[in-house]
């Protein structure tokens, strides 16, 4: 829905769950704008070609008028097919993408996370006729896209498709961050072992997230977040005062992260 980032939850037959981030109405609207510009450019180019064609053949005796009539008829049909099937042809060739979707890193997908079938592609593009109403303002499609949980226009609902954002995610280099941590807990391996035993994955994830994203926080928020996390881990395992005295909350959490992620036994 508007203002909320939603994702498509998929559970594979192997029991693995994953999420696909869905495109919102604004992003989809921008992709549509790009596609409309592309259509306009194609139309202008083709109409220039047809005008030249007609001008060239119009003067020919006997067959000239017939050829120009044929050219005009072909142009009308080309325009119709272009507007009806532009999306369908590109989505089929580029596996769910048009020019606009490529530019904005969007892709049409089956709502079960599968690749698209030709039938789905054609149906979602035929339903554009109703989505663009009234006239060509995309009001109906826009309203449906804004109000439905998965941001689907009517064509998407009929075809069982969603538009997802293609996010390029690289493997984060955690090693570099851990290398920067000077862990004073390392002198007490038995307490580190207890900390690992007492900590669960969720707590470890929170601590690691805080270290990885420290620069995204303001100074006050950073103090507060690290304070709370450090207090939590202090309750789980008590380290002697000689190594914790004068240790800031942030450094305490860094030590915890290093202990949990580097030294743990898989």
């Amino acid at each position: 829905m508007l203002g909320r980032t939603v994702s498509l939850q998929i559970r594979t037959p192997e029991g693995v769950s994953f999420q696909l981030p869905l495109a919102g109405p604004v992003t989809r609207g921008l992709a549509l704008m790009v596609d409309l510009l592309v259509l306009l450019a194609i139309m202008i180019t083709v109409s220039i070609i047809f005008t030249i064609f007609n001008a060239f053949f119009a003067g020919l005796p006997y067959i000239g008028p017939y050829l120009t009539d044929l050219g005009t008829g072909a142009f009308i049909l080309f325009t119709f097919v272009l507007f009806m099937l532009y999306g369908a042809i590109l989505e089929w060739l580029w596996k769910g993408q048009t020019v606009g979707k490529r530019v904005l890193h969007l892709r049409v997908m089956d709502e079960r996370g599968l690749s698209l079938t030709l039938g789905q592609i054609v149906i979602r593009n035929l339903f554009r006729l109703v989505d663009i109403m009234p006239s060509a303002f995309y009001l109906i499609g826009g309203i449906f896209c804004t109000l439905t949980k998965r941001c689907q226009r009517i064509g998407d609902i009929a075809a069982g498709t969603v538009v997802v954002r293609e996010v390029t995610v690289n493997v984060p280099e955690i090693g570099e961050i851990l290398d920067q941590i000077d862990n004073s807990f390392a002198s007490h391996p038995h307490l580190e072992a207890r900390l690992r035993q007492n900590s669960g994955p969720e707590e470890a994830r929170i601590a690691l997230d805080a270290v990885l994203r420290r620069n995204e926080l303001g100074e006050r928020e950073r103090l507060m977040v690290f304070g709370e996390i450090a207090d939590h881990f202090r309750e789980l395992t008590e380290f002697p005062e000689d190594i914790t005295l004068g240790l800031s909350d942030e450094q305490y959490v860094r030590n915890v992260v290093d202990t949990l992620y580097r030294r743990a036994v898989a």
Binding site: L20, V167, V169, N170, V171, I174, R205, L212
Partner: peptide, 17 residues
């Protein structure tokens, strides 16, 4: 299950999807 790390999980989710 065992790490709860976000970014690597996101990368793998993308890959699996």
């Amino acid at each position: 299950t065992f790490a709860g790390e976000v970014e690597v999980a996101q990368f793998l989710e993308n890959l699996v999807a």
